[in-house]
């Protein structure tokens, strides 16, 4: 099994003047390609910091972070932007779509920031449209986020996370704002992507959602407290998956 991401003695300190907060205290782990990982933990346990580090939104104070064989722990701001653009797909709890853009335009946003800034080609456009129809929004291409339901918005975000064909998909509480039916829909999509071989790292505090991952990392006080393995997909999610795709 290939290792897609590796954290070596990762430390992240926040200097708040009076106190030095150590949000990551020597985290050491590896992420296998094609795995579905849930990061859990109480608030303040360091799971958000870990996700920010994994997403290249932040740099570790100490330690190394390899992503796709590249050491990204010491890259400068522009290089980190490139890493985010090429290797990472983000899915946020609050969807984070650009309100003035249509569904299609939102999916295409990462393409605008590709290295060398190539123009959006016809092939790119076709791919974006395919992704939109994959997440079931083929007939909503011209809609704006405000015209969509929460679940639909999150599906746009998933399509957007796929458009740059990333090494890992980082999902931060992807179902946190959704009702249970919509949650099932989104989880079904994530399982589908995982089945295709995509690596998904998901932060969640909902045990039922976390149980659907193959591997669970439970964080406490900036270190990995323990890990669990084994996937339990509820029948309705599994059943839906079979019929939807």
């Amino acid at each position: 099994m290939n290792i897609v991401a590796e954290l070596i003695k990762l430390e992240k300190h926040y200097d708040l003047g009076a106190v030095l907060v150590k949000a990551q205290r020597g985290v050491k782990t590896q992420f296998a390609e094609g795995d579905f990982i849930a990061i859990m933990g109480a608030s303040g346990s360091g799971k958000s910091t870990m996700l920010n580090l994994l997403g290249g939104l932040d740099r570790p104070t100490l330690g190394k972070y390899y992503l796709g064989g590249e050491d990204v722990s010491q890259l400068d701001d522009d290089e980190l932007s490139r890493i985010r653009n090429e290797r990472i797909g983000f899915i946020f709890q609050s969807y984070n779509l650009i309100p003035q853009y249509t569904v299609l335009e939102n999916i295409e946003v990462p393409l605008h920031y590709r290295p060398g800034y190539p123009a959006i080609s016809a092939a790119d456009r076709k791919r974006s449209e395919e992704l939109a129809s994959r997440v079931g929004l083929a007939d909503r291409l011209d809609h704006r986020p405000t015209q969509l339901s929460g679940g639909q918005q999150q599906r746009v975000a998933i399509a957007r996370a796929l458009v740059n064909d990333p090494d890992i998909i980082l999902a931060d509480e992807p179902t946190g704002n959704l009702d249970s039916t919509t949650e099932e829909e989104i989880m079904r999509l994530l399982h589908e992507l995982n089945r295709e071989g995509r690596t998904i790292i998901m932060v969640t505090h909902e045990p039922a959602v976390a149980l659907q991952a193959r591997r669970r990392i439970i964080m406490k006080d900036g270190v990995i407290e323990r890990e669990e393995f084994g996937q339990q997909i509820p029948d309705e999610v599994a059943a839906g998956a079979a019929t939807t795709f």
């Binding site: 997403g55 522009d78 985010r84 984070n96 920031y113 590709r114």
Partner: peptide, 16 residues
């Protein structure tokens, strides 16, 4: 601000 954050997360550099 939010939009700027989104763009940055999706790969926009400071210069962009």
């Amino acid at each position: 601000t939010r939009e700027i954050g989104i763009r940055r997360a999706l790969g926009a550099k400071r210069g962009d």
